[in-house]
Design a protein around this nucleic acid. Structure first.
Lengths: 152, 152
DNA sequence: GCTACATCCTCTAGCGACTAGAGGATCAAG
DNA sequence: CTTGATCCTCTAGTCGCTAGAGGATGTAGC
């Protein structure tokens, strides 16, 4: 698998064409060789790198964290403590999120059930999410991953 | 707890001062009464609402989704069918998110376990993220969590 | 060869959800 | 009555894309 067009690399990696160009522009992906007519050509290694980036983004890694991981990959003699730390941070956050979402889920189920009995009544969505002032997750400060959902 | 300054409301809710003003500007938070010298004054209800918004954002809900949740809370008398639909939509979203995050969590655990005490050469972080082809997390189509960091 | 039309190129501008800073008013403490 | 924190409005910047303009090139069918 070599000399892929940007479109083929996009298909193979799952990263959109403009996003590949964007990654090149921020130097997350090296500038590939060009054809005589100035078109980018990618190989299997590029596709792998793109797939890696895509997956890492989906896991909520920031671009800077991904940059660090790629650097670690390029210099495999170094211990992977940094990569491990990044993964651990993500894991802690993901676990907290799951817990919060499960609480919200329970409340939404309660609402849907209340609805099926003819009244919305005292909706406690706000309480369920507002009342957790002391939860450890928030001591650390800023949220690491906020939504940019596919639509947004 | 009443007549809080914007700074006090920020401290109490965990939402930053400029962000509170931003939420007002996009009408996620109602414009509060002002003092004679034009300063915003908040009460306990505003703080709860802000804390709710913050939690929901941290859970990855878009502002528009939060708006519908708040509307459901604000107007408990609205026709049951409408409330039910909103709650059901959010519930579906929450459940999808939980599922995605659980798959993600499993991967992160594998990553951390594979990584511990190793070197990057043997570190599975990169392998796992690059060889993502059969990862269940991706079957669902769209990524549930993408980064839009607090600066993003 | 010629015509469609897809794909590529660069560039700029826009999005959501903030965040930072300028420039000025006001408040609370010493 | 000064000092410094906090408040006000406003504009512009951030991240990680995404969309569109305007034009060049590649490819398939006739």
């Amino acid at each position: 698998m070599a000399n892929l067009s940007i479109g083929a690399a996009a298909k193979a990696s799952g990263v959109k064409v403009p996003t590949i160009r964007y990654y090149e522009s921020i130097e997350l992906l090296p500038s590939p060789p060009r054809t005589g007519s100035n078109r980018r050509t990618y190989d299997a290694g590029d596709v792998r790198r793109l797939a890696f980036i895509r997956h890492a983004r989906e896991l909520g890694f920031e671009v800077e964290a991904i940059r660090t991981l790629l650097k670690l990959q390029d210099e495999p003699e170094q211990p992977c403590a940094a990569a491990d730390a990044i993964a651990r941070d993500r894991l802690a956050e993901v676990e907290h999120r799951i817990a919060s979402l499960q609480a919200l889920r329970a409340e939404l189920i309660r609402m849907v059930e209340g609805c099926s009995h003819g009244h919305v009544g005292a909706c406690r969505v706000i309480e369920i999410l507002a009342d957790h002032g002391e939860c450890a997750y928030h001591q650390g400060g800023e949220p690491a991953v906020l939504a940019g959902r596919p639509g947004g």
